[in-house]
């Protein structure tokens, strides 16, 4: 059963090619951020109700950066998200119902209960189903872009883009280093989003890297690098927008490093009491900050913002209601077969 591309209901596609004003773009950005936060909140509640196997991993505090990445991509691009990318996934085209189904392990989900939570994806949409090993998805994006070049699809000055997410922890994985270097050698239109959320599970940056700033590595790899304040929605849109535009124009691989703070534990099981009040006081909540800014600038009213939350919760409740009626996987119906070839004894050219 192939995962089928599905349309997200109600919220207009942010990838439409209409010449949206900056304000429209920013409102759509906030909608994705709010939808992701509300969905993360609901998944936590479902976990408390014992309706979700495993843990729940949220993107709390990283929505502005993640949503900007997802919404600045378009159909035909590739996105390899990580565990904090609920917002980017939704903005790129993941459906709410598949998030709910996959987290509940439903047979109807894209992973059919064989895998769950943040490992979901839809390869047909270009949304890669991550494995847990940090850095591993980046070379897969490189391979997909190389394939498109072999197929003659990487020509002109409006290229498709491969985007991959990583964090301050994953930046130190060997796989990441190999993949990023290969992307640069091949001069591919790749955008690496680095969410520096200060802490790899419970280990702070002073024990994970020793360079002054992660963006300094961009030049070392042969990437164009830029930084942004990951709590500032407009700054995220501007930095990623510029990086994506450069990649599309054929300027090669781009790295965008956002400084922000993970506003939750590693997963729902983690109280994150290692995050000190002092550290917390240095970072705002991107959704609150953006809501305030849009109100002050007169783009949205308090009521408008409240409606965004209400709309998000309504969509999510409908998806949860639907998923709850759907079947769990049945061990008796499973094929228990890991191979695509039905019979190796018949493979003969």
């Amino acid at each position: 059963m192939k995962p089928q591309p599905q349309k997200l209901p109600s919220i207009a596609s942010p990838k439409a090619s209409d010449p949206a004003s900056i304000n429209d773009l920013r409102v759509r950005h906030l909608r994705w951020m709010i939808l992701a936060r509300a969905l993360d909140d609901r998944m936590c509640k479902l976990k408390a109700q014992n309706l979700v196997p495993g843990s729940v991993f949220t993107g709390r505090g990283q929505e502005a950066f993640s949503a900007a990445g997802g919404m600045l991509l378009r159909p035909g691009d590739v996105f390899a998200p990580l565990i904090r990318d609920q917002a980017g996934r939704l903005a790129f085209g993941e459906t709410i119902i598949d998030v709910v189904r996959t987290c509940m392990g439903k047979r109807t989900s894209s992973m059919r209960g064989r895998d769950g939570n943040i490992h979901r994806g839809n390869i047909d949409l270009g949304l890669l189903p991550m494995i847990s090993h940090l850095g591993a998805m980046v070379s897969v994006v490189v391979g997909m872009l190389m394939a498109r070049r072999f197929q003659g699809k990487l020509v002109g000055n409006d290229l498709c883009v491969g985007m991959a997410s990583i964090g301050d922890g994953g930046m130190n994985a060997g796989a990441l280093h190999e993949a990023v270097n290969a992307a640069a050698v091949e001069k591919l239109p790749m955008v690496l989003l680095v969410a520096n959320n200060q802490v790899a599970y419970s280990t702070f940056n002073d024990r994970t890297y020793a360079c002054k700033d992660l963006v300094d590595r961009a030049a070392g790899y042969g990437f164009n690098g830029q930084s942004c304040d990951g709590t500032d929605a407009a700054a995220c849109l501007a930095a990623i927008g510029d990086a994506v535009a450069r990649a599309r124009r054929g300027e090669g691989p781009q790295m965008v490093v956002a400084t922000l703070l993970r506003l939750a534990g590693h997963g729902l099981h983690d109280p994150a009491d290692y995050i000190t009040p002092e550290l917390k006081s240095r970072f705002g909540d991107c959704i609150q900050l953006d809501s305030n800014t849009l109100k002050i600038q007169g783009v949205l009213s308090e009521q408008d913002i409240e409606r965004l939350w209400e709309d998000a919760r309504t969509l999510i409740s409908a998806a949860v209601e639907q998923a709850q009626t759907e079947p769990d996987p049945d061990p008796g119906q499973e094929t228990w077969n890991a191979y695509a070839e039905p019979d190796l004894k018949k493979v003969r050219t």
Binding site: V138, V140, G143, M146, A175, E178, N181
Partner: peptide, 10 residues
């Protein structure tokens, strides 16, 4: 590692 990942992606 990247060789294998690239093969998967392609």
């Amino acid at each position: 590692d990247a060789m294998a990942g690239i093969a998967i992606g392609a």
